[in-house]
Design a binder for these strands. Structure first.
Lengths: 226, 226
DNA sequence: CAGTATCCGATGCGATACTG
DNA sequence: CAGTATCGCATCGGATACTG
């Protein structure tokens, strides 16, 4: 008997669809490709997916040989890594991004705006190596228009790492960044330019010249925007 | 409220997944890409999909602007054609095929063998222009091992067209082709070579030299095999 | 923290029948 | 021929709670 995700066709397209044309699956793979390998990190990339469902999806990928699950090097739990076959799904997922970027230029829906998802994405792509300081430094984001609890975020650069906090870590802030949630999201995914957002006054950078001017060097945009 | 195929994410990958990560959708698009544009023809490519579901999928594609539906030029009903945006899904679907071809080399399951799907695919890729005859010609396929009712097929070449019949059209047969269903399927999708299948004696061509020798010229393999 | 187990409701989708 | 309408069950998947 045919399982629910099977098509009963020998066509290779159908075989791939049995893996990819399943709810959440492309997003799980996107997360794995983007370098998250702990369960909790993966979850942050798909916050609306229940943990049990994420677990079963990962199991399918593991059983099919596209993900390898190993005991975590540090801490408890496991690490999930794409196998070579799994990594080869990368170009497909990238094309998803490119295609949407080209052909779905409609406005981002309000319900798709998500401060924590945005900040998590941003943090992952910050280039700490190009952040012009050698001591610890702190950047505060303020997403105007977001709910109070998700309005302020702090990124702490330290020893080449960038950590994201939802609570004020208490350090002195070196750079203040303020923007409406929508504007920063649109910049992030490449729908509008940094310079345009600055000119319009929506995106505001407040801090020492050195940090403001180098902003585009260490604030990297999403993969599809680049 | 989020609809069932939506993810609530601004990420372009998620936006494409809302279209493509839906059951049957990649196969419907594959059919549209491969040149079927009548409802019935589309159905022949996804025989296990119910017509009502095919209908709703087509409607989604139409409403999203990836398919255009026009009154049929001949006969009743409509023609479904991909828009430019829809056609741009072609490379993605092709990569599905390539990826499976590279990474899913497991044996074709028995339940995936389907004589009518195979013959329909084959017919669509026959190159009538390279079939070496100027009058009407007839080729009989015998799929040994298939159920009696799907065992024999006839292709009639006439005026540069190739027609597929499940019933003996009564013409004199110019070329007899015989093969186990599995062997012909594997040749078709590129898992094994024509010459290998001939040498092993599984694929047998019986007819005038001219037709036998030119077989690879007009019997074209699936897109992913090429 | 890193997942699993359980529950239950919504709905996706397959089957069948029907209609212009 | 070219689809639509209806029905009903299976299952998908979201929510919650729980455990090592």
């Amino acid at each position: 008997m045919l399982k629910h995700n099977e098509y009963g066709q020998f066509c290779p397209v159908a075989k791939t669809a049995e893996i990819l044309a399943v709810k959440w699956m492309p997003l799980v793979i996107r997360e794995l490709l983007s370098g998250s390998f702990r369960f909790n990190d993966l979850q942050r990339g798909v916050p609306l997916m229940s943990p049990s469902l994420l677990s079963t999806r990962l199991k399918v990928l593991e059983d099919s040989g596209f993900v390898r699950r190993n005991p975590a090097k540090k801490g408890r739990g496991h690490e999930y890594h794409l196998t070579e076959a799994g990594k080869e799904l990368g170009p497909i997922v990238e094309m998803y991004g490119d295609w949407a970027q080209t052909w779905l230029q409609q406005k981002i829906a309000d319900q798709d705006l998500d401060p924590s998802l945005l900040m998590w994405d941003i943090r992952r792509n910050l280039d700490a190596a190009h952040f012009p300081t050698d001591r610890r430094a702190s950047v505060q984001f303020e997403l105007t228009g977001a709910k109070a609890k998700q309005r302020r975020w702090w990124v702490v650069f330290e020893e080449g790492e960038a950590d994201l906090c939802m609570k004020d870590p208490g350090h002195e802030v070196d750079l203040y960044i303020s923007s409406p949630l929508r504007a920063l999201t649109e910049v992030w995914i490449g729908k509008r330019s940094i310079s345009g957002a600055l000119k319009s006054g929506e995106l505001v950078l407040d801090g020492p010249r050195k940090l403001v001017d180098t902003f585009p060097n260490w604030f990297l945009l999403s993969a599809t925007a680049r």
